[in-house]
Design a protein around this nucleic acid. Sequence first.
DNA 1: TAAACCGGTTTCATTATTTGAAACTCGGTT
DNA 2: AACCGAGTTTCAAATAATGAAACCGGTTTA
Lengths: 267, 267
Amino acid sequence: MGRVTSDGTVGKALEVLDQVAAYGRPVRFSELLAESDFPKPTLYRFVQTLTNQQMLAYDPERQTYSPGVRLVRLAHAAWEQSTLAPVARPHIDALSKAVGETVHLAQLDHAQVLYIDKRNAGQPVEMYSQAGKVGPAYCTGVGKVMLAFLDPASAATVIEQQSFHAFTAHTLDSADALRAELADIRQNGYGFDREEHEPGIICVAMPILTDAGRVLGALSVTSTTSRTNLAGLEAFVPILQETAHKITRDAQNWSFPDYNTKETTGI
Amino acid sequence: MGRVTSDGTVGKALEVLDQVAAYGRPVRFSELLAESDFPKPTLYRFVQTLTNQQMLAYDPERQTYSPGVRLVRLAHAAWEQSTLAPVARPHIDALSKAVGETVHLAQLDHAQVLYIDKRNAGQPVEMYSQAGKVGPAYCTGVGKVMLAFLDPASAATVIEQQSFHAFTAHTLDSADALRAELADIRQNGYGFDREEHEPGIICVAMPILTDAGRVLGALSVTSTTSRTNLAGLEAFVPILQETAHKITRDAQNWSFPDYNTKETTGI
DNA sequence: TAAACCGGTTTCATTATTTGAAACTCGGTT
DNA sequence: AACCGAGTTTCAAATAATGAAACCGGTTTA
């Protein structure tokens, strides 16, 4: 678990915050302590401070900690300002309506795929996904297309960090297999998920690149093997490409108003 | 802007994070400095640290900072674990389908309403576009019903902090007017927004209370004066009440599995 | 052309905060 | 009555944060 560069006290506190978030359920202090490098009083004080600050929530009943509501407020601002979501929104609305299947918008965050937005079309697979959720990069359509177009140095670093857990029989199970697949994707300009993450779930994915070729994010259309097949999904490539280009265009022109009232308007 | 109790370095850094988020647009260092109590190098180092930690994102092009993607990841965990959203989800899905109008789920966060989830009658879930957004408590349906059933001491504190900005001609413009309205709401068990926040927008709201009467959150059904009127919305009271009760029941039984794999399953 | 200016960045001695071993509290065992 | 484990507090030593001042590179002003 290589630490980034631990910037002082703040970095350490945020490390603890991450630790709590990683559990995916409320945790007791002792559980954190067992997994932590910090001595007991140090960890204790971090948890106290974070709780004071509403970055953690404490349940006195169960004596557990979980990520706090303040994060929800902060994340709204992050989502609106630091992700592709606001620019992409109208385009993925249109895409979703046109293809009638579930659409995902994702960005790369460290070595993982971070889902930024999603549209469920008509009668979708009840698949459980949401904005803010993270997934593996090596076995999702969006993950692979982003890796494929990442600069070689960064790509190498990210590939290094993949775990290659075999979710299904089709999951790519080694760095070499992944690298071969990425070369393929670079060739075509888009990629598939061939039931590599979940059985029965397939998708076609398109990178969103700047004119200079830098990766901004990725788009995908997801379906099931019972409704269609890879050839069927491939038919969506032109509209995906067009949507990606529109997002690129808008992202590059994206500029913030000189003055934006801080007043909360609308809901 | 009264500081809570400023817990050391971490508290100060988070104060800066809040400051950036409050802008609602990317900000320059100098703008932050002008508004900040911190000396230049101190503020500079906080911004540096937060950026390193991906809590802020730096745009070298424009030389601006905005809340970072790490928050989106963390907030997902917060939303899943520390809010009513996961328990309420199936119930507001059903409610939304039944009433065919926009449904909101909110909680009280400090003196503000924090929107936790929402369903658009036509289009489904659009995650943090609304969730995470904050609004005034004194002029929204959900805000007023939560205040009405808050314990008197907390309610007084919150009322104290309202600004009573007149968004529309119908906005309650004083603490006294608000207190009278709250008494009314306590009487009825539910409340309305009579175009108090936005012209043409009306809603009926229902508190979500524990059996002991503690406020957990609130639900509302929103519509427009062109489509219906208050009497029309009042027809939704029984189903809103039923939904609120179901959420209460589930929230009280809510318990986390003993062991939950950390593996990312599904998307 | 020089001088002042401005936003951003770095230095470094001073100061205040963090740190963690140890010790303590409080329920619940043994 | 002694023990145990989870959580909490103490306090001197170690460390990290602090901020006045100075610096840098680009732009405007005199």
